[in-house]
């Protein structure tokens, strides 16, 4: 069974280039008008930190 040597494998691995990180991450991390805990929890569950999200997941009055 054919197998590559170390140098050939390293050259092939170098072909797999990852894309650059999107700029949007920086604004998500350092958004100055939103406190860090709101940014942290809003991604986990919109209902925890976002008033809009909370309204969206709250049951209507009178429903079972």
């Amino acid at each position: 069974m054919k197998s590559l040597n170390d140098e050939q494998l390293d050259r092939m691995l170098d072909c797999w280039v990852a894309p650059p990180a999107p700029h949007s991450i920086e604004s998500r991390v350092f958004a100055p008008h939103i406190p860090w805990w709101k940014r942290f929890f809003s991604k986990i569950s919109p209902g925890i930190a976002s008033p809009t999200g909370r309204r969206r997941i709250r049951k209507k009055k009178g429903t079972v």
């Binding site: 069974m1 054919k2 197998s3 590559l4 040597n5 170390d6 050939q8 494998l9 092939m12 691995l13």
Partner: peptide, 14 residues
Amino acid sequence: ARQNLKRTLAPLWL
């Protein structure tokens, strides 16, 4: 990991 890749990528190298 490298042994696995040497085998799986060999046909591609050829």
